[in-house]
Simulated assay, not measured.
Amino acid sequence: MQTKKIINDGNRAVDEMLEGILAAHPRHLKSVEGSPRSIVARDGPRQGKVGLVIGGGSGHEPSFLGFVGKGLADAAAIGNVFASPPPDPILECAKAVSGGAGVLFMYGNYAGDVMNFDMAAEMAAMDDIEVRTVLSTDDVASAPRDQRHKRRGVAGNFFIFKAAGAACDRMLSFDECERIAGKANDHTFTMGVALSPCSLPQTRRPNFEIGPDEMEIGMGIHGEPGIAREKLKTADEITNEMLDRILDEMAPARGDKVAVLVNSLGSTPLMELYIMNRRVKQRLDEIGVSIHASWVGNYCTSLEMAGASITLHRLDGELQTMLDHPCDCAMFRAG
């Protein structure tokens, strides 16, 4: 049975979405002429500043479009649903934001994205634009601890992009921007849970099957298999199971400080997210870890998938400064 969606044509959904986003946020966003999948901040790119280009597949809104603006990403290259953008729009983003100080590429660690962003970097080099890349690998469930370089980038992009964007906006050197981006990634840990599938606009059919009384811990944002399929539990039990895995790896000490993101995968309502956030705070209070800032809502979705993720971003003085640095994007503001 096909799912219901408010769309015109599944094959046009991404382009029509982009038209709507540009119409809604003309103060923040524009597209590169001749390259409608290259979305650039109206305020941000400037001479002498390291340019920050992010990007990935559609279907995760407000990632990646929502994080383009002053103080965060300078541009985002947009792919089809759950698919990497091709090299050309990535290259156009790099050209649009290059201020002579280098361009930093940041995106989730997926094979298609790596291949296409690397190709774009090679093409940019032919235009004398130096590009460096920092991958996000915050998904604790997607590979063992000793293989973190193989992990996927998921909702933790929120904090990782934020730190990198602040470093770039503060006109730090290319080396420093790259270092801070990598450090932010190393300090970010995410775990998700899925309760129901999503469906692509082109097919309108569920992209995986799960029982009415089941949940899957660790499922990826494209429906990649998780680490355990279990009977549905209470909100506190689910939150505990996710936090146990995050805290085991992060190994925080009493007195540490974190930022928290409780993220909907698409259809999970705020009521349920806030119930989970309540338990996150209880658990962190129990171990003496303080919360510097929290965000609850839709930040990295998977179309209409039911489920949620929890991200902890371990702060030191430098990362807290980057987190608190002002930014003004189409769908996100801070400071």
Rank of each mutant, 00 (worst) to 15 (best):
I287L: 12
A83N: 12
P86M: 12
Y274Q: 13
F161W: 15
F161R: 13
S31I: 05
D118T: 12
P62R: 13
D316W: 04
Q202W: 09
C198L: 12
D88W: 10
A251G: 04
P85D: 04
Y299I: 00
N185Q: 11
A155L: 05
D127K: 14
C93F: 04
P144L: 05
R37H: 08
T188W: 09
S63N: 13
Q147Y: 09
A13H: 13
Q2D: 13
L104K: 03
D43W: 03
S142A: 11
L243C: 02
V262F: 00
D138F: 02
K231W: 00
A184T: 09
Y107A: 15
A164W: 09
A166D: 00
D43K: 15
V131C: 15
S98G: 01
A120P: 10
G218C: 01
M17T: 14
S302G: 03
G307Y: 05
S136Q: 12
S58K: 10
V97C: 06
K49F: 02
K281P: 00
A235C: 12
G192A: 15
H187G: 01
E230A: 14
G59Q: 10
S58M: 08
L270Q: 11
M126F: 08
H292P: 04
V193G: 00
I129P: 07
R37S: 02
D169I: 01
I217T: 05
G56A: 09
V296Y: 01
A125Q: 15
L72A: 08
L52N: 00
S98C: 14
D128W: 09
